[in-house]
């Protein structure tokens, strides 16, 4: 595949964890990962549990520091090396280019669901009213009743929290979106909504990388699979 077409690509990405509290124990997780995703494409990470799919996702988001290799992505029209970006540049990339829907919502105390969803839009410069209107629309589409919109999601069920999380991830329309088990705690109706959202994002030219436990969902949204294999423990 031609790199120049990609929205995100990695070169020999490797990651291990060194646990200093366990006598410097080194746990290798990823080695020589070469992944590339084009705009409008959805790539599903596959591989057995514990192979490092979530670790890869976190590396791609800059949440885990890559140990070897490089991660590149197209940010505002130009290739940028995420692995070389400092904290402020990474924030800037996340604000405009790179979205991430984790498995669990990180709840901010006392902030209502609607504002949690609108926040990344406002951070990108949207007018607060327009941002809230978009947030409301998405929450309703994900079947979160209006009476919950102004409540902080701390007391919501797992499924409700996940839908707030999804709305927050899809609201800004990032060119690059990482999805970690986006449908894990959703019922059939809401799974269908998520499948629809992913389809629309692809239509809009977004590149998506996802971990989908649910094979049915995966088959419907993924254009191809990218296999993440467990590597042999090296001492």
């Amino acid at each position: 595949m031609s790199i120049s077409e990609s929205a995100l690509w990695t070169e020999g990405l490797g990651k291990s964890f060194r646990l200093h509290l366990q006598g410097g124990l080194r746990i290798p997780v990823l080695a020589d990962v070469d992944l590339a995703v084009k705009p409008g494409e959805c790539v599903a990470l596959s591989g057995p549990s514990g192979a490092g799919k979530s670790t890869l996702m976190r590396c791609l988001y800059g949440n885990y520091g890559a140990e070897q290799g490089r991660i590149w992505l197209r940010h505002q029209g130009a290739p940028v090396e995420l692995t070389a970006a400092d904290a402020r540049a990474t924030r800037e990339i996340r604000r405009h280019t790179l979205g991430y829907v984790s498995q669990f919502l990180r709840v901010i105390p006392r902030v209502g669901a609607l504002d949690i969803v609108a926040e990344p839009l406002i951070a990108r410069g949207a007018a607060p009213d327009a941002a809230r209107a978009r947030a409301r629309e998405l929450l309703l589409r994900l079947n979160l009743p209006e009476r919950l919109h102004h409540l902080p999601p701390a007391t919501f069920s797992g499924g409700e929290q996940q839908r707030v999380n999804l709305a927050r991830g899809f609201a800004p329309g990032y060119p690059l979106l990482l999805l970690d088990e986006p449908t894990a705690s959703l019922d059939a109706a809401n799974r269908a909504v998520v499948i629809g959202l992913i389809g629309e994002a692809k239509q809009a030219g977004a590149a998506l990388i996802g971990i989908f436990h649910d094979v049915e969902v995966r088959d419907q949204v993924a254009d191809r699979l990218f296999e993440v294999l467990p590597i042999q423990d090296a001492a």
Binding site: H20, L21, N63, G65, A87
Partner: peptide
């Protein structure tokens, strides 16, 4: 150690940061 808040706290590199987070 320094960096993005979630990077430092989720993937601490320095032994002292690991101790602090743990």
């Amino acid at each position: 150690e320094h960096g993005l808040t979630d990077r430092v706290l989720d993937d601490p590199q320095h032994p002292y940061t690991q101790l602090l987070v743990a």
